[in-house]
């Protein structure tokens, strides 16, 4: 999250001085989720949250913690395979929503004979390729430019912890997200995580105790909305408890 934290309500008009000022006048202003442009000059909000800006990208968006995930292109997600149809696996990202497709050949070095055989209800870490209103979203486990998996693929072992969508976004945005609980824990524990934008956190610590400790620590930071100090307290407590 950026330093400027303005809380806005739906329908608020964003003052021009609150928007990022770009060094390059040719770069147009990009509006992210929650903002709407009403010609000629007005920019209003459509959702309640914190106004965030990025002057380098000349972008503005609203940071909010919504409850429901809607797939959008290039999101990293954790999908659950429900069944395999002729050419693809059908997967769910969130319960009670239409399935997304994962082609059988969308894995690293997969051919018709060497494609991974995924059981029903297996977990896959994937990226959304296409998401439109009219067709089922498609996900893939390879980077289309390199043909490599780049860390995507079936998830073996471990455990999935539900987290809020805001938390997933913060975890994926790295240092800017202001979540340092995982870094703190990694000083003493060895574990692997995968964050899905659909509000899922997969943790594998090799054993039950480590996995649970990591997952529960992140969930606690999420539900209690802990800041830096609170997070380091959680880290201390978890490490002492193990």
């Amino acid at each position: 999250m950026t330093s400027a934290q303005t809380i806005v309500l739906p329908g608020d008009t964003i003052a021009p001085n609150a928007l990022p000022t770009s060094a390059n006048p040719n770069k147009p202003l990009t509006l992210g989720p929650g903002l709407r442009h009403i010609p000629p000059q007005t920019i209003t909000t459509t959702i309640a949250g914190a106004l965030s800006t990025d002057s380098k990208k000349n972008a503005a968006w609203i940071e909010y913690n919504s409850g429901r995930y809607t797939p959008s292109t290039s999101d990293l997600v954790i999908a659950t395979v429900t069944n395999s149809v002729s050419e693809a696996y059908s997967c769910t990202l969130t319960p009670y929503t239409p399935t997304v497709t994962l082609p059988h050949l969308a894995f690293e070095s997969a051919t018709r004979k060497t494609r991974p055989q995924l059981a029903n209800h297996a977990l896959v870490y994937a990226r959304v390729v296409s998401a439109s209103r009219d067709t089922a979203p498609e996900i893939t486990c390879i980077d289309p430019s390199t043909g490599k998996s780049e860390g995507l693929g079936p998830l073996k072992g471990g455990m999935v912890f539900p987290i809020s969508m805001g938390m997933a976004r913060r975890l994926l945005s790295g240092r800017k997200g202001g979540v340092n609980v995982l870094e703190g824990l990694s000083e003493r524990l060895a574990f692997e995580v995968a964050v899905g934008r659909n509000g899922m956190l997969w943790v594998d610590g090799g054993n039950v105790r480590t996995t649970l400790a990591v997952g529960r620590a992140v969930q606690e930071v999420d539900t209690e909305a802990l800041g830096d100090k609170g997070q380091s307290k959680v880290v201390d407590r978890v490490l002492r408890g193990l």
Partner: peptide, 15 residues
């Protein structure tokens, strides 16, 4: 109405 996502293999084994 799509059905509920059943608990995944990973979660089942972990529990």
């Amino acid at each position: 109405m799509p059905r509920a996502a059943e608990i995944s293999v990973n979660e089942r084994e972990f529990i």
